[in-house]
Design a protein around this nucleic acid. Sequence first.
DNA 1: TCTAGCAGTCAAAATATAAGAGTGCTAACA
DNA 2: TGTTAGCACTCTTATATTTTGACTGCTAGA
Lengths: 359, 359
Amino acid sequence: MDHKLSDRKKKVLRAVVDEYISSPIPVSSSEIREKYFNDISSATIRVELSALEEMGYLVQPHTSAGRVPSSIAYKFYVENFIGKKPLKKKDIRTIDNFFDKKFNEIEDIVKTSAKVISEITNYTSVIVINNINNVLIKEIKIVGLEPNSALVIIITDSGIIKDNIISLKRNTNSSFIRDANVLINKIFAGYTVGELKTRSQMVEMELSDFRELLDCVIEILKNYSNKSAKNVYVEGGNKMLNYPGATLEQAKSALNVLEDKLLLGNLLDDKTDNIEFSFKIGKDETCGIDRCAIMTAKYTINGKEIGQAGVIGPERMDYGKVMGVLSYLSKSINSIAACEIIDKCDETSIFGEEDGKEK
Amino acid sequence: MDHKLSDRKKKVLRAVVDEYISSPIPVSSSEIREKYFNDISSATIRVELSALEEMGYLVQPHTSAGRVPSSIAYKFYVENFIGKKPLKKKDIRTIDNFFDKKFNEIEDIVKTSAKVISEITNYTSVIVINNINNVLIKEIKIVGLEPNSALVIIITDSGIIKDNIISLKRNTNSSFIRDANVLINKIFAGYTVGELKTRSQMVEMELSDFRELLDCVIEILKNYSNKSAKNVYVEGGNKMLNYPGATLEQAKSALNVLEDKLLLGNLLDDKTDNIEFSFKIGKDETCGIDRCAIMTAKYTINGKEIGQAGVIGPERMDYGKVMGVLSYLSKSINSIAACEIIDKCDETSIFGEEDGKEK
DNA sequence: TCTAGCAGTCAAAATATAAGAGTGCTAACA
DNA sequence: TGTTAGCACTCTTATATTTTGACTGCTAGA
């Protein structure tokens, strides 16, 4: 399907997509002629349209209707005609407002980002955390809770990962907790998550007393770098219902995909290394969400690549804007996170072990 | 609207609702006669139907159609004919499976409950936490994190409330944290959340050094007993799209209400004290969600009333089943929580007499 | 008080008609 | 060879028109 398109064909193709995006009715030869050409007639355009249809870029709903872009057309359109559009002042203000507060946790940043993307683009947004391998573990804190459970708090140079209560068979009394803190930090602190595998092997022979705890901590870290439903954040799912022309049936199936976090995670996950944006369109590329497209960008926190942030919207979405938002936001997240951390850690690595001593 | 209904009228009314619930097409006099009466003719039933319509219980979509129940009819139906239906073995197994794991936090229990309710009933479920006033604070732990922030963990007799990173202006060095732990626990430990107001006044004169921290802790506790978006959990929102006859427009507006957690919280919140179930129906009682009804029950954790759990479903829902599930689940939650806590807190004195009841 | 029977009503389905938008084709022209 | 005007043809959409069938309400008689 890689015919070379003449300049005029390109212009016609672009006209069709532009027109269809601005209003979703099949576009006719005369419409194109009026708005985009004054040197050739509609009959000539019809010839071009016919050729483009032949090549698979356009589709005709029925014999006497105008043309509608195919998935291939959108793909070509995005790759050749569209770049990130600079954001409106208003939108920048919105984003900055959202981020004008303290963030303590990665999760918090991610959730806020998802919200802001959905708010501004008016599409559904999805963010996946799936790559914290080169994040640096600054400290791990174990706090004893009930007799058999403890809270594990992981502090990294990209923020705090918390939310992990673990249950142990053994009693988590204060002396155990104290020793555990020392040991665990000896093992993990100062290393990146990526080094985890080798590290954990290194300590294979350590006191079996802490075996169970160690396994828990490793499990937690693994969970954060692996695909797991917990690491997928969706916002504005019901905006999926706003696309005109959608039937209830389509909406339902789309929402079902959104529900399946694991599937979604895979959908966003993108192998291609170098490009800024990844773009998926067509039923087979979007896990069966009909007439939709997915645009994602990698994002970083404190300079480390953490995952992907993206938008699921109708094929005829405002690609330029979406790209603009994703791009701006990825910068925003990064600088915010960086500020936070620099701001806070001017006296890094001073935290003594102070907890687990009452009862 | 409180006419007294003859027994026969009641029987007819019930027939209409039963019939309409089992299949949502207007029910005719002859249909009722066939399935519910063999002693009187359809003409006689027509007279009764006519009367019931006059009284506001039934509605006729158009002159030559059968009858459809009005909101009032559903209300009457639920109040007079329906009680909780015992659960199917299969459903009980499903529930027990869901709860067959360790729960460390209230939030965890609540989320799981919401999931299970939605799963079994196939309707949208909502749970609100809005009353932890008589929950006993066993301990509060302050863990220093970064130089200016700390994690507050609240351990109660109903489970752990955590998830609260706070930022302070002052430095959270280890000696401060140590003192804070002692002080905070002197103030809060052993008291219920309800006593909070008086307590916090009592310590008005304490060292102003800890003022800021104290305010944070109080704020957290307040947040949990107040209405706030954080305390509302929704599950299976997109099941709202499954009700036959719903238009896309209705679905959209319903999902919008679901999005507004605060509104939802108020919707579930119910003042009536003594009854087990609360039931709302009709556009004005359901915040405009069309053709839907809301059935809620109070639930307790460790014997303390914590909030409401409910189902939002179509008017023609399986009320008996819903009531059955809510009722069973409320017992489940209670006993599970109790087990957990007893299991863990063998040293505490508070339990032991009340609340034996497991099945 | 009940009921058989019938006339009347109305929605939904089926059918017919008209209008309009847009194309493809052809033949002529530069 | 590429372009264009013009026209016949196609197919959707909108609007009327008719038919069908399901119910009811009413009435008169048991």
